[in-house]
Design a protein around this nucleic acid. Structure first.
Lengths: 102, 102
DNA sequence: CTGTCATTTTAATAATTGTTTAATAATTGA
DNA sequence: TCAATTATTAAACAATTATTAAAATGACAG
């Protein structure tokens, strides 16, 4: 994963509403949740949610699929994995250190 | 780790220079690196670096210690661990899913 | 002390981001 | 087709963030 994509993913998650959206989608797994369901659960207006979905989608952190009138969003675990790996790469230059557990 | 701290940590890392700083500090381990050394390595002005150090410190992602005229910064692995755990908590509601590997 | 080096702070400006309101699409059922 | 529902887009404004230049702090050597 390249630096510029990691920055984009971090930016996308670095906002309270979007972090909450993402966490709900992590819990809901591959099936995901409908846009309106998320909006209601978080008490955020649909328009505002839509902007946040766009930001998260653009960072490839979430996926969407249409089902009738509903749009279901779900977490893209592959990108999250890549981001986490990037953050801890080459920890302590390969030697054991205070980073134990990473 | 609380949501508000996670957002702060993500915000701190969601910037190319700060992400680069953090990664260099992850590699350099507990000893860390001097402020000026990092500035030179990244080609960023000392004043600008200082602002970024402040942001990262305020998010508790890095630690600092003074040694003579030099200030050494190092990665705070505990906070990174907390952040990573927060992001993947309750994945797929505890059931096996597409999140395999997280 | 005085001068120099390493870093931080302050102040100013430019750029980005988040929220709101209103308008627009797409889908469904009567 | 018409109205209702679900979601997105566009435009505007307020708020936050990043960068720069200049001044200030703190540490050490002579």
């Amino acid at each position: 994963m390249e630096s510029v994509h990691v920055v984009k993913a971090l930016q996308a998650l670095a906002q309270p509403t979007r972090l909450a959206i993402y966490r709900l989608l992590v819990v809901s797994g591959p099936d995901g949740m409908a846009a309106g369901q998320l909006a209601e659960k978080l008490g955020v207006s649909p328009a505002n949610m839509s902007h946040h979905f766009k930001t998260l989608s653009h960072a490839a952190l979430i996926l969407s699929r249409q089902d009738g009138r509903f749009v279901y969003y779900s977490a893209n675990f592959t990108v999250m994995n890549g981001m986490l790996a990037y953050l801890t790469e080459n920890c302590c230059d390969g030697n054991p250190g205070a980073c134990a557990g990473l």
